[in-house]
Amino acid sequence: MNHLQLVLSGLFVGSFYALVALGYSMVYGIIKLLNFAHGDLYMVGAFAGFTVLSVGAGALGGGFVALIVIMIVAMIATGGFGMLLERVAYRPLRSAPRLSVLITAVGASFALEYGIAVAFGPTPEVYPVGVQDGTLHIANAQVTYAQLAMTAIAVVLMAALDTLVRTTRSGRAMRAISQDPKACLLMGVNVDRVISRTFFIGSALAGAAGVMAGAYYGKIDFLMGFVIGLKAFTAAVIGGIGNLRGAVLGAIVLGLLESFGVPTSAASGVTSSRSASSFSS
């Protein structure tokens, strides 16, 4: 067995999970909501990219420039969707029992999945442009340029988010709200707007991951968000939910575990019980 190869593919898969896990963790950190529709936003991102690609394929041509343009469009669309979701399904319930929001989250997840199934049909769609490429050999392992590029994009996005949360004004507002929303309101922070913005950013990241998955794997379907949603959730938990750097770390750990053939659904139970115990004390 080639261990270097396993590590590399684990890192690659982990970077996908990380983009989705970040949104999970952000939303949880700020409003303590397990957003079960988050995985479906990833799926919506993939379909948004697909639509842009189908409509404007001729104008854009192929290659990475086109991919990045499409990704930006899809990120804006998915981010908008996330904001809409928050406005329609979550904000009216902010003063309601916490579990009620869980129900609307699951409801939103159903609505998104089957909304897409109605709009695009249940048959999987194939991305019209794939990223075709050469291969890089490192020792006895190989990485495709596409994998490198995808990982690079993911890292850039993650670094941008980290900077945003750590150094900007609105990042400070997010961190403040996660600690004490009531005090923020008293201090004149526009809580609604910050939460909206958080949803936009989290959803846009998921959308970017969706487009990347579409372009790299080539196949998208309306239920593709479910499994990755559960995994991202697991990753966020392993890293300590609400902690952004932790979510990235958790995602990479999960990617590596999978790559080494650990059945992760079971592993997630074990690891989460461990991490949970470390939190409770």
């Binding site: 898969v13 239920l223 593709m224 499994v227 790559s259």
Partner: peptide, 28 residues
């Protein structure tokens, strides 16, 4: 089923030196 990344299985197959792969699932 339902996942997108099968590098775990792919690496295992490569490691096993098999020269014939029989996939019995669905087309997706």
């Amino acid at each position: 089923a339902g996942e997108s990344d099968y590098s775990g299985a792919v690496n295992a197959v490569l490691g096993s030196k098999a020269d014939f792969v029989y996939w019995t699932g669905y087309y997706q």
